[in-house]
Amino acid sequence: MELSLHRLRMLRELHRRGTVTAAAAALHYTASAVSQQLAQLERDVGAKLFERLGRRVQLTELGTLLTEHAEEILGSVERATHALEEAQEARTVRLTAGVWASVASGLLPTALTALAGEHPGIEVRTRELAPEDTAEAVRDGSLDLSFVIDYSDAPTPWDAGLERAVVAVERLHAAVPRGAVPSGSAALDDLAEHPWILAGAKSHFGRAMRTACRRHGFAPKINHEVEEQSTAMAMVGAGLGITLVSDLGLRLLRPPGIDVVTLTTPLLRTVSIAYRRTAFRRPALHLVIDAVRASAAELGLGTEPALP
């Protein structure tokens, strides 16, 4: 019997997520392709591994047994890969990173250019995901590393199987229509009467900003709920309300008609790189982290919360 690592990964994802559709989405395949590969795995084994229960798939006793061994096998392969990279001093390594817009445009161009110049054998590929989805993609093995955010008012629940390295600490600022706050600075509660433009409450950013406002004694009047920072900024420029934006977010294209207001009650967010604990000894991973930290330092972003 020959067991395909590729099919074992699909089996592991099916066990974790419960449906072929969810497993396929995590692995970036079609549900049809995953179904075909799992059917082939059953033929390889010569036994029934799955039972359908409505839309969900339940593993048989043999399927559960194989899944347990799949975890060990895939973990051993990962450790062997890391050991080889370490022995080769990370000369030829490919890493896939989860990103979102502001880090992709604000930190990565400088970091990856410097990395390519000093370590041309390290190739970093990126995949844009919602910030709240990147850590899970690292945990399930579809990414090698990802950028994650912790807001001072809404820390991210952390997975014990992951480590994180802080690469930047940003301040949040108010973006307001030109002339709306003549002083150029304000406490957060001074902005309570303005109409707001924020991401939805299910997003990490939207939840964190609502929490911050409540902590300062008010519930924001949200006239426009949009997910993209660039859309929110365009609406601010049109005079439709105010929003909050980070240091890196300010490096995105800023429409005319916007003033950036310093918050006298500082709100911070910490940007980290998350990776699996089993990857701690990968030299290439730490070279990427160092390059991103250097890029952040060039922008004046440290790795410790700034004092108010």
Rank of each mutant, 00 (worst) to 15 (best):
T126P: 03
R178G: 08
S183Q: 05
R127C: 02
D189H: 09
A186Y: 09
E193R: 15
S146I: 03
E136A: 07
S152N: 06
D159M: 15
W158E: 12
L172W: 10
E136S: 04
L143E: 11
R127G: 05
E118F: 01
E163M: 02
E132A: 01
E193M: 05
S142L: 03
V167A: 10
A116Q: 02
P131C: 03
E118H: 03
T134H: 04
A174L: 04
R139L: 08
G184W: 08
T134C: 00
D189W: 01
A135W: 02
D153A: 04
D144Y: 05
A137T: 11
P182I: 02
A168E: 06
G121H: 08
E193T: 10
E170W: 06
E163C: 13
A130C: 03
P157A: 15
G141R: 03
D150T: 07
E123V: 10
A160D: 15
S142Y: 06
A168D: 07
P177H: 05
A192Q: 15
A187Y: 02
A168P: 09
I149N: 07
V166N: 13
E123K: 11
R171I: 01
E163W: 13
G141P: 11
T134W: 00
A186W: 03
L129D: 00
S185W: 11
V167E: 14
P155T: 14
A160G: 12
G161H: 14
A160H: 12
A192T: 07
R127P: 00
R139Y: 03
H173M: 05
A116M: 01
E136Y: 12
D140Y: 10
V138E: 09
R127Y: 07
D189S: 08
H119T: 02
A137C: 12
I122C: 00
P120V: 01
L145H: 07
A116N: 01
L172T: 12
E132T: 11
L145A: 13
L172S: 04
D159W: 10
L172A: 11
T126A: 00
V169S: 03
I149W: 06
V166M: 11
D133N: 05
R171E: 15
R127T: 02
S142E: 07
S183N: 13
E132K: 04
T126W: 00
R164V: 13
P155C: 07
D190C: 03
L191V: 06
A187Q: 11
S183K: 07
A186S: 06
R125F: 04
R178A: 15
E136W: 07
E170G: 04
E163N: 14
S183F: 09
S152W: 11
A168Q: 14
A174K: 06
E163T: 13
P182H: 04
L162T: 11
V166D: 14
L129Q: 03
A186R: 04
G117F: 01
R171A: 12
R171T: 14
E132W: 00
T156Q: 14
R139N: 05
A116R: 09
D189L: 00
R164T: 15
P120H: 01
G141T: 04
E132F: 06
A186D: 07
S185E: 15
I122D: 00
L188W: 04
P182W: 09
A186L: 01
D144E: 10
A180M: 09
D150E: 15
V138N: 02
D140P: 01
G117N: 00
P120I: 01
L162K: 14
G179E: 07
D140T: 06
E118R: 12
V181T: 09
W158S: 13
D140F: 01
L129N: 08
